[in-house]
Structure formats: C-alpha cells, structure tokens
Design a protein around this nucleic acid. Structure first.
Length: 422
DNA sequence: TCTGGGGTCCTAGGACCC
DNA sequence: TCTGGGGTCCTAGGACCC
C-alpha cells in the first residue's frame, strides 16, 4: 500500500501558523508580482474566489469579506515543508517528496505490525502538533488511488484526516463519487476525449476494457487506467538532479532599454547558476527569452528566445551570465515594452567527472571554481546577493517584482525571526 | 494600472546511417 | 513498370503536474 500525505491549502496554512488570528478566516496567497491567487482556504473559496483569479479583478470581494491576502514567500514555505518531511522520515522509511506540499509513503510491510489507518492518524497528529500544519492522508494500493483518498479525507470530516481505499467495494464507491477531472493524470484534453466517448466518472473509465483503452490512449492514459484498477505502475522517483533549471519573472514595471533587460537577465542567470551548483551539476546550454506584455493588445507584441552552447559544461556564474547576455543582445529589439525575461540552463550533467575540451580557451577553470566557492560561502553567510556581478545593478530596478504583502522569513533569517511578547 | 513560475514525460516525424 | 529493411538521434509540441 501507498499513502499520500497532502498539506491542506499549504501556503495559506503556513501563513496562518505565524498569524494566529486567521483561524476560520478567508486567506489567500498570491503569485509573484502579486498577480493571481495561487492558494486559498475553503473560507476564501466560499467567498467566490478561485485559484488563478487575478487579484486586481477581485478587490471588491477581498474588501467586502475582509479576505487576508499574502504575497508568496517561497523561502518560508520551503522551510516549513522541510519540517513536515523530517517528521515523515523519522517514522516511515521510504518517503518520496513529490512536491512542496505532498509526499508519497511506501507502506509495504507496515501492515504486518500496524493498523495503517491508526499509523497515519498518529502521523497526522504529530505533524499538527509539531508544525501546526493540517494534512490529509489517503491510503490505497496505487498512488493515483491514494491521491484520491487524500481528497476524500480532506472533504469529509468523518474520516478524521485519513481515508483508506483497501477493498473492492470501497474502490468502486470512491471511483463512482470522484470528479473525473480531478483524477491525477487526467488533464483538460484527456477529460474532453473521455467525455466524448461517454465516460463520465472514474468508474466508467476503470470499467472500460484493456483493448479499448490501449487503442484510444497512449502510455500515460493506459497507466492511469491501471492505477484506477488498483494496479500500481506509476513509478515517481525522486528527482536527484534537474534536467533543466529555469529562472524567469514578470516585471513589476515594463522596461524597454537594454540596460534594464541586461540587469534582469544577469540576475536570473546568476540565480540559475546558484541552483546548478547547489545540485553539484554543470550545464552546457544557456537559453534566454524575453517577451512583451501579452495582456496589452494596444502595445506592439514581441517574443524571442536564443540559445548558446558552451564548449565546456560549467556552473560558473560569470561564464553563464556572459553567455546569457550574448543571447540577449542577439534578440533584443529597441522600442518594445518588455514584461518578462528568463534564463534556462539545459544539458545538465554531474559536475564530476567533467568532460574537458582540447581547445578550451579558459585557462583558469580551477581558480574560477575556487572563486565560485568563495562567492557561495559569502552569500550563504551574509545573505543572498551580498556579493554579485555589477551588471545586475546596485540599485532597486524597475523590473523588480512587486510583493506588498510578504511575510518575514521567520524560519530562515535571524533578523526576521518571530518576536513573542509574554 | 494590476494577469505566476518551474518542471517532467511522451510521441511523431524529420534527418540521417548502413 | 519495377523502387528494401532496419536502425538511431534529435526536436518540437502536446499534455500533464504542482
């Protein structure tokens, strides 16, 4: 059996931990630039808000119901996520962190010693006690069914946070009740296709015969069908090393001059290089993209990307930034109001062993690696971007994102730690 | 005025090889 | 008129996830 531990409205729950007056109140967390709603509590949903709504269109609702609004603070959420994971790992041997707010547990063998529902309930209570984060847990023979179980656990208070789908009767009942669109692996297009063939519920789909499924769907659809029938086949392993690393942002204000774009691209290139070194990897390609504001039909639209291949794979901030700036210069067109830029690192591989190049012109690779170590040490000790390239700019840039409702980094910055008055 | 960011996997088809 | 068989690699785009 597998179980899926899902943190309820995770970003909102974290904010509520540090703002205790918000229990039972509508809360939502916004995307970067305070653009759209990315997380919201059931109370906020009840006010008529939805995930993905642009917040500026919802100001009336926000004011009327006194919805508490927060800017995204990923540093804070990641730190809290780590605390939840630590608790899981202490209790269960095989824990797979699927996303920032979800983990799969491999419960194989535990059924001999424990009542699985009791075991998961104990885990749920422990997480609540130690972190104040409420979780919902599903238990089932396949991961797709376990995810389904966690949704039931969240929806119906009677389950006390844990729902197990372990018999044929329960499986069929769950499949008949569940929204087809909410099944893991069924997106918009697959839903349309299934509806076209008269499939309305997950049960309809699971009951189709294998030949029909194989002839109408490819591998992903077939796997979902197997999983719904209780046959585990989705092997989500933990990602050790990303294949691509991307840093991109919409700008707080549109910019048109090359200097501002350069500053943004350099900043994103350096952030990407940081992540790259963090996973002990090197990359061989650097891609830069820039685009105008697609929502402003009155302005001239433009979007372009360029890729540059390096002769020797690297994780050097300076080399990667130089490559990114070359890409930018090749696609920059004056007179456009730009709204977004981004840097993607590709062809990522392990930093050792490193394939060298006979005609490498950079004779100082070793010294530069030491330089990067020094840079990382300083920034780790004194804070992100304490030491950075001059091209990133020294002052606040117009493209910097808006985040007017951001909580302090309570868990990761000693200067922003929570103050408690007794 | 204001509209997010970061990933993975799969497949078809083109280009090329012997 | 007749026009093989069996591969690999790469890329773009689709679909999905959080």
């Amino acid at each position: 059996m597998y179980s899926l531990v899902d943190c309820n409205s995770f970003f909102c729950s974290v904010e509520k931990v540090f703002h205790p007056g918000l229990e039972g109140k509508p809360v939502c967390v916004l995307s970067n630039n305070d653009g759209c709603i990315v997380a919201l509590t059931p109370e906020a949903k009840a006010c008529g808000l939805h995930r993905g709504d642009p917040i500026f269109k919802m100001q009336d609702i926000v004011r009327h119901y006194g919805v508490q609004v927060f800017s995204t603070n990923m540093q804070l959420y990641a730190a809290m996520s780590q605390r939840v994971i630590n608790i899981l790992r202490k209790r269960i041997q095989h824990v797979e962190n699927y996303s920032i707010d979800e983990s799969f547990l491999d419960l194989n063998g535990y059924e001999r010693q424990y009542d699985l529902v009791e075991l998961m309930q104990e885990l749920k209570n422990r997480i609540l006690l130690c972190t104040d984060i409420p979780v919902s847990i599903g238990i089932a023979p396949s991961k797709t069914l376990a995810k389904m179980g966690s949704k039931f656990a969240k929806q119906y208070p009677g389950y006390h946070g844990v729902c197990m789908i372990d018999t044929e009767t329960k499986r069929r009942k769950a499949l008949a009740l569940f929204e087809l669109a909410d099944v893991w692996g069924i997106g918009r297009r697959t839903l349309e296709k299934l509806n076209y063939y008269g499939v309305q519920t997950p049960l309809d789909f699971a009951d189709k015969n294998e030949t029909w499924v194989k002839s109408h769907f490819h591998k992903p659809g077939y796997q979902t069908w197997l999983e719904l029938n209780g046959i585990p086949c989705i092997d989500t392993h933990e990602v050790q090393r990303n294949q691509t690393i991307c840093t991109s942002r919409s700008f707080g204000e549109m910019v048109s001059d090359l200097a501002s774009l350069k500053s943004s691209v350099a900043s994103f290139a350096s952030a990407s290089a940081n992540k790259l070194r963090g996973q002990e990897s090197v990359c061989k390609t650097v891609t830069v993209f820039i685009s105008s504001n697609r929502f402003r039909e009155d302005l001239q639209q433009y979007g372009q990307a360029a890729t540059c291949t390096l002769s020797v794979a690297t994780a050097d901030t300076i080399e990667i930034t130089q490559a990114a700036l070359r890409c930018l210069e090749s696609i920059y067109v004056p007179g456009i109001m730009y709204k977004k830029s981004g840097v993607i690192l590709g062809e990522i591989s392990s930093s050792s062993p490193l394939q060298l190049d006979l005609f490498d012109t950079n004779k100082k690779r070793k010294e530069r690696r030491e330089l990067m170590k020094a840079l990382d040490n300083i920034n780790h000790r004194y804070g992100v971007k304490t030491l950075r390239l001059a091209v990133e700019g020294t002052e606040r840039q117009p493209w910097h994102i808006k985040c007017e409702h951001r909580s302090p980094n309570y868990l990761t910055d000693i200067h922003e730690i929570l103050t408690v008055r007794i």
